[in-house]
Design a protein around this nucleic acid. Structure first.
Lengths: 108, 108
DNA sequence: TGAACGTATGAACAATTGCTCATATATAGG
DNA sequence: CCTATATATGAGCAATTGTTCATACGTTCA
């Protein structure tokens, strides 16, 4: 019953790290929206303020702010103020890696 | 206006590839559920049938089947029959890469 | 100080999601 | 064939999601 024990080992590893998978799913959930991925991808190229993002996404400034809040809460982006504008940028380079990773899959 | 043109170049690139980002988001949406990530992660270790998955996830066989259908429709998993069982396995190794990529981020 | 601009936020709503329940399909064994 | 077992599927439902609208907050500048 070699196969049997392999499966139960996997079962053990997964149930033991259940929280980790919950976290992982939550991370991917953030990338699972076109608006947010576009924002993140744009930010890999250059920091941007809310109105700039709102413009090229063709969605309301309000909608952008809501999405940015999600990204900030998840620590994927950080902000700084420049006069009346708030400039958003990526907190680290993992975002780029994750996007690339997915793009590679899509490219088949 | 150096900065201005950078932003508009990004805007161009993103709106031009809008469909691609839609696809990307849809891919991540699949990983954005704990049950599905667990299934996918388990399958990186070994192929498994529905009842095995159902057992270690502690969710209904029906729920598992529904999730597996999503994974199959997205071509992330493939199936073969073995007697009364249907054995599920990954279609390729991108899944492993994507999961690793996310795990790396969580590890901080 | 007050108007104008940029951003954040809460409520409301439609759309989507993931589950359960009931039931259908398919295969193996008697 | 008939039954038991394994899986698939559709309907229904509660929970979540992403948007818009209205409005509040914060900064600049006249």
């Amino acid at each position: 019953m070699e196969k049997e024990s392999v499966v139960s080992k996997i079962q053990g590893a997964i149930t033991r790290n259940s929280e980790l998978f919950e976290e992982l799913a939550n991370l991917y959930k953030i990338f699972g929206d076109a608006s947010r991925v576009k924002i993140l991808c744009a930010l890999t190229q250059s920091e941007m303020c809310v109105s700039e993002i709102s413009e090229f996404l063709s969605i309301t400034q309000s909608a952008v702010s809501h999405q940015l809040r999600i990204l900030k809460t998840s620590n994927l982006v950080k902000t700084r103020r420049n006069g009346k504008s708030i400039i958003y940028s990526l907190t680290d380079d993992h975002v780029r890696t994750i996007i690339d990773c997915g793009m590679e899959h899509i490219a088949e």
